[in-house]
Write a protein that binds this DNA or RNA. Structure first.
Lengths: 185, 185
DNA sequence: CTGCAAAAAGAATCGCTGTTCTGCTTGTGA
DNA sequence: TCACAAGCAGAACAGCGATTCTTTTTGCAG
């Protein structure tokens, strides 16, 4: 039964979501039509529908890809064995922000206020990020500040909250900075 | 030349934007149709188009109304003659958040990444808010912490940035908390 | 009071967009 | 190498939604 090999199939899916993310970044989740993605990806309508059930499905996959990538980058810093202090952690997080992803990320927040599926993805991602920041801060408190693990855990909570918040705000600022590039009217 | 008296006209416009904001909060900026606003406001298509050039115009007016209201509330705290310390200021700001407005506010951020007019409104509002927070913090540094005005100005900047960021993040959290209420499918 | 232009209602229009359908093409397993 | 199902292209379709148009109603100036 000759279908595409899994690797190739995944490749196509990635090709599509990547094109979609570029479109979304330019025109927004709703204002991007399937035709836009068709043009951007070089594929055709039929091809896209062969890989994604419908547009909502594609939006969901794209959102997941963008947010997961961000969370993943965060995981690296958090897992380091010489944990950065909170300010340093925040600086690194901010340094890793990519404007295109920031824009889609912020659009995703807006979408999450009405779209249950996207809402789930966003909330999960934010929770996972918070947990990782919390771990990183705890590790710092233990290894560098020499607190007892129990107390470190507790003290880490408000610090993690602050780091997370400042990071999210910076994501917003970044998204608002890059000028709105129009496709030809 | 008998048109509506200015007061009455302003009333209608407000009636429309208020209905629009409720719709936007429920269904998002894009997914809200003129028909939805028609139903919510109890008016008709024609009436809406008599007051707003088009949907973009209406979205713009609604966004402006919501953000202006938030900025205004902030102004009150900032103008107080016993300035709150930064933590207190932040607490008050957060206490003043309304879920409906938070949702529309966050949607507005997403929209601002592609829509130049909304972008302008959002950036202006954020800048104005930052200036007010800065003033409030400066006043606190001078009156309570007894710093010289010049130094207070300078020291206030990073503090204001932090307060602003934490506030914006809280706005996001609030928008994500209230569950996505659906209109009947 | 009264007339009339603006405002409101609601039907009609028209373009756009998601989705489906119909064949051709191509990759894969034997 | 081959055969055939899955991929893919692109046209066709269907429905929705912004805007416009026509008709009726209404509020204000005189």
């Amino acid at each position: 039964m000759p279908r595409l090999t899994d690797a190739r199939k995944e490749l196509r899916r990635a090709q599509i979501t990547e094109a979609a993310v570029r479109c979304f970044s330019r025109n927004g989740l709703e204002r991007t039509s399937i035709a836009d993605i068709t043009a951007e990806s070089g594929l055709s309508t039929g091809s896209i529908y062969a890989h994604y059930r419908n547009k909502a499905d594609l939006v969901q996959a794209s959102a997941h890809a963008v947010l997961a990538k961000r969370a993943e980058a965060l995981g690296e810093y958090a897992g380091s064995d010489t944990p950065p202090d909170p300010d340093e952690l925040l600086d690194r997080l901010i340094a890793g922000i990519d404007p295109v992803e920031a824009r889609v990320g912020v659009q995703t927040w807006g979408e999450a206020t009405n779209n249950p599926v996207i809402h789930g993805i966003v909330v999960d991602t934010i929770d996972r990020m918070r947990a990782m920041v919390h771990d990183s801060v705890t590790a710092w408190l233990v290894k560098v500040e020499h607190l007892e693990p129990a107390e470190a855990q507790e003290r880490a909570t408000p610090i993690a909250h602050r780091v997370q918040s400042l990071y999210l705000a910076q994501l917003l600022y970044t998204a608002l900075q890059s000028p709105t590039e129009e496709t030809a009217p």
